[in-house]
Every structure is written in structure tokens, then in C-alpha cells.
Amino acid sequence: MTADRMSSKPASEHEERARLTVDERDLGPQMAPVVAGRRQSLEGFEADYTDIVDYIIRCTHKIWEDKAVGLIYTHYAHNTPVHLSDAEFYGRDQVVENTVRTLAAFPDLRLFGDEVIWSGNDRDGFHSSHRVTWSGHNLGHSIYGPPTGRRVQRREIAHCVVRRGRIVEEWIVHDETALIRQLGLDEVELARTLARMEAELGWQSPGDLVGEVPRLPGQGHPPVQLDGDPRDPDALPGLLYGLVWNARMLNYLAEYYAPNAVVWVPGNRRLEGHGDLTAYVLGLLAAFPDGAMSVDHVAWIGSEAQGYKVAARWTFQGTHGGPGPYGPPTGRRVRVLGISHFEVRGGRIEREYMVWDEFALLKQVYRPG
């Protein structure tokens, strides 16, 4: 299992940068005042940012809550690609357009910063994984129809690559199913309608893949033992996905997760303990019998003494070939982007925020043949 990681840093350096977290900041109704002076080398960044966490939190606040949308032109590169499960955008003009559209639908939108997990430096570039709780009222027209007046809340994670004060690439995942349900809409019927419309427009589905799902090494089988130490935060996601999801060794869930672990999954669903988590994984693998997880990037902060916070960006692929939560099998191929934030202590996961766009998967499942 390979991952596109930043070059490894000595443990002492990781421990030092563990203090640069959102835990130190006032993320309530008012933004914390700018702290005088730099706490981290930020060559090429505007002077009012003190470190990479402050940059992510503060520029998000400026653009979305202060509605200084035009700052996107100074905080994104002109050719920035933005990746979602069901769309690919290119360039900051599209970022501006999508931001304006969202704010028009939810003009009182608030983004509460829950965590920023990061790696890198101002020489090689930073990777940041920013988890937010997204909250507001649907007071304007959205892509789903006229305003409902309803209050909505969903979880979202944005993974950014930042160089010299500009975002040069971004991956965004959000719990769209939770939002649609809170708007009072039926996600299955809406997915069928939009999937049919997108097919008629000739839009390509992310599940239109060629070749086998990359889980099996040739004619062999997934390894039931993988090299690596699960106490190493850099290795943990690859071991977890390789053994549990790809090799189907679900007995390892009890080794990687604490007995009372809490896992948040799409639809604002809360799983607690090994039983809930095992049932969730089994349900997805039953619906997608050839399903496979691959790790795309890993970053972490913390130390063995303090505990680790780990961000893993991943891709799930499979064929809808079995019964499960998404209706009778359709034979459609699916591909979804996801990001998980793990809180690890004593070598076990105590809490996980697994964020991916389940609605994008539904559209792929119900896409007309």
C-alpha cells in the first residue's frame, strides 16, 4: 500500500509542530484576534498569517463568513484544480462561481473549524486537511430547488496543497446526504433524477472506469499480513484499509479501534464500538463485493505521549453487485473520494470522522445504463 506523502520528519519535529493546532484557537462566534508575529516560517504568505493553521482557518473565515469572496483570487492559483467525487473544477473563476452559488443558497452560512491536520513547510509546500462543521439556513435557491427555510448542518473536509500563500490543488469531501435529508428531500429519488439528467447531458460518471478494481495482485489474493507498525501514524491508514477493507480481515477492527471507539459516517450517523463498525463495513462490502480502498495521502500531528491526529485521503472503487443500503444490485461501477480524520491514543483509534459524498455514490449507482 503506497501513499503520496511528504518526506518523513524526525519525531521531535512532529512533536514541536503539534502545538500548531486549532485547539489553541478561539473558533467560536468571533475569530480570535491576529497574534502579533510569526510562529512559523511562511515565505510568500501575507503578513497577517502567523502559521499554516492560522492561514487555513482565517482565510476560510474571510471568504465564507465575511463574504470577501474576491480573496479567492489572491489565495488560489489561477489554474488550481479542485477535485470532488462527482465533479472536477479547474481555475479560481470556478471556485468563485461555486462559492457565490452556495452563499446565495445559504447566506447565513457558518463554517466552524473542528481540526486542521497538516504536514510540510514553506519551502516544499504544505498539505492541510481542514475539517469543518458547515451550518446555515436555506434562504435562497440552491442546485436542489427553491428555498426551504430549513436549517442544515453537515460535515466537510478540504485537503489543500498550499505553496507561497496560494492553494494550488484541493480535494473536497462533504456529507451531502445529511444536507439533502435536512432540506426535506428524498436522496434516492433526487439521485435518480439527477443521474438521468447528467447522462442525457453526456456528463461522464466517475464510475466509468476501465479494467479491474485494483484490489487483487494479478491472480493472487490480497495479503493477510502487511509490513508496518500500526502504532506508526504514517502507516496506520494503509494497514487498516489493506487488511480490513481489501483482505476482508475484519477481525483486525478490534486491534485498530478502541472497544468504545466512535465513528461518524455519512448521513450524520454515529457508530459506536466494534459491532456497529463491523456491521457498517460488511454492509458496504456486501453491496460492492469487489470493493477496494486505496490510500492517496497521509498526514499527521501529535506524539506518542499526546496521541496522534491522522488525516488519510482515500479512494473507494467497486461494482454494485450485491444487496445492501443502496437497493437491488445495478452492476454499475462506482468511484468515490473520501477523507478520514483519526484520533489515536495508546495505539488504537478512539474516534474517526469518515467523510465522503454518499449522494455522489447514489448518482453513480442509479445512472441509466
Results as ranks from 00 to 15, higher is better:
residue 310 V to A: 10
residue 35 V to P: 01
residue 173 V to C: 05
residue 223 P to G: 11
residue 19 R to S: 14
residue 185 L to N: 02
residue 27 L to E: 15
residue 344 V to G: 05
residue 306 Q to R: 15
residue 22 V to L: 15
residue 207 G to E: 03
residue 166 R to G: 05
residue 141 H to F: 12
residue 113 G to H: 09
residue 337 L to V: 03
residue 101 R to A: 15
residue 266 P to T: 03
residue 13 E to T: 14
residue 238 G to H: 00
residue 251 N to K: 11
residue 48 D to H: 13
residue 22 V to E: 12
residue 16 E to W: 09
residue 154 R to A: 08
residue 212 E to K: 09
residue 239 L to S: 01
residue 212 E to C: 08
residue 276 D to S: 06
residue 137 H to F: 13
residue 353 Y to C: 05
residue 279 A to F: 00
residue 139 L to D: 03
residue 245 W to K: 02
residue 33 P to H: 03
residue 251 N to I: 06
residue 148 T to I: 02
residue 64 W to V: 14
residue 36 A to I: 09
residue 36 A to K: 12
residue 305 A to V: 13
residue 318 G to D: 09
residue 118 W to K: 04
residue 349 I to R: 01
residue 227 D to N: 10
residue 112 F to R: 05
residue 238 G to F: 00
residue 31 M to W: 05
residue 108 D to A: 02
residue 169 E to V: 15
residue 334 V to G: 03
residue 102 T to C: 11
residue 151 R to G: 10
residue 177 T to S: 07
residue 107 P to S: 04
residue 352 E to D: 11
residue 120 G to E: 08
residue 197 M to R: 14
residue 225 Q to L: 13
residue 262 V to S: 08
residue 337 L to S: 04
residue 325 P to K: 05
residue 40 Q to D: 08
residue 195 A to F: 04
residue 44 G to I: 09
residue 98 N to I: 09
residue 320 H to P: 03
residue 171 W to H: 09
residue 276 D to A: 08
residue 304 E to W: 08
residue 176 E to G: 03
residue 113 G to C: 12
residue 258 A to C: 10
residue 85 S to V: 09
residue 149 G to A: 13
residue 341 H to T: 02
residue 20 L to N: 06
residue 63 I to W: 07
residue 6 M to N: 13
residue 77 A to L: 13
residue 105 A to P: 01
residue 352 E to W: 01
residue 157 I to F: 01
residue 99 T to P: 04
residue 277 L to C: 03
residue 20 L to F: 15
residue 59 C to M: 11
residue 338 G to T: 06
